[in-house]
């Protein structure tokens, strides 16, 4: 397309050979970037002046968070535990449900094109919805509380693990599958012995990785009433109780760091 609009430049060498040099895309890319930046600045009221004059306020708030208010920890503990429980439960159920979804979305396993397309669309639509929006909707359906959070995390995990899993299944070496079908196994049996061993480590590893991310997400779900520390964050910032916010953040950082370390250990073992 671009090459048709701007035909390649012909370069004549002294030896008489002609080389076609494609026009560089760089000017066009730069132009688009500059235009997009200018437009975005106008749409977002971006202002370097405000940024530089007022950014001190941001660091001021951070300054107030240090040192954190240690004795707010007991009040925080329950919320932290429930954040963890939400993400654990959501991740586990989500990863389990992702299994049938991913299999049904794999074009090399399921013969019906319609089924594959439907499940692929479901997975990508689910992935598009931001977790907080799903959580918000979930609070209307399941009421305020951790249940809504679990549902939101579950749906996200389902879409994330599901997509990566079907991509893995589709890229699997089909040789063993065909071999097993040829020795008289059913498609399901062949799947169990030929495909599962190939994708299992990847599946577990993505699920763990997704769980790591979910702990972070779970921390904000409380903001819309879906349980966990989010509600505390909202209240404390509202009351400008920054030292307590500092405590929450510290607790989150430590928790997330611990979980990532444990999960990374297992993920390395898997691969």
């Amino acid at each position: 397309m671009y090459d048709k609009l701007f035909p390649p430049k012909k370069v004549l060498l002294p030896s008489g050979k002609v080389v076609a040099e494609k026009r560089s895309r760089t000017p066009l890319v730069l132009l688009i970037l500059v235009a997009a930046t200018v437009l975005s600045v106008r749409f977002t009221d971006f202002s370097l002046k405000v940024l530089f004059t007022r950014i001190g306020k941001f660091f001021g708030i951070i300054g107030e968070m240090i040192p954190p208010k240690w004795d707010s920890f007991p009040a925080l503990w329950q919320a932290l535990v429930s954040t963890l429980q939400m993400s654990l439960l959501g991740s586990m159920i989500g990863a389990l449900i992702a299994l049938p979804f991913a299999v049904l979305a794999s074009a090399n396993i399921v013969r019906s094109k319609a089924v594959v397309a439907v499940f692929k669309i479901i997975l990508s639509l689910l992935r598009t919805l931001p977790t907080l929006v799903t959580a918000l909707i979930a609070t209307f359906v399941f009421g305020l509380g951790p249940m809504a959070g679990v549902v939101a995390i579950l749906l996200f995990t389902l879409s994330y693990v599901g997509k990566l899993l079907y991509e893995q299944i589709e890229n699997v070496d089909m040789g063993p599958f065909e071999a097993m079908e040829s020795i008289g196994m059913t498609r399901i049996q062949a799947f169990r012995y030929a495909i599962v061993p190939q994708v299992l480590p990847g599946y577990l590893s993505t699920s763990l990785f997704c769980f790591e991310g979910n702990v972070r997400y779970a921390a904000i779900l409380g903001y819309v009433g879906a349980g966990g520390v989010g509600l505390l964050i909202k209240e404390n910032i509202g009351f400008r109780e920054y030292p307590s916010v500092g405590m929450i953040i510290l607790a989150l950082v430590v928790t997330v760091y611990l979980i990532e370390t444990v999960s990374e250990h297992f993920r390395k073992k898997l691969i």
Binding site: V11, L13, P14, S15, K17, V19, E21, K22
Partner: peptide
Amino acid sequence: TKEQKIKALEALDKVGILDKAY
């Protein structure tokens, strides 16, 4: 410069990979 590009292409021609220039 265009001159430099031509020189570079000539050098590629000497080792027989002019067609791979881009």
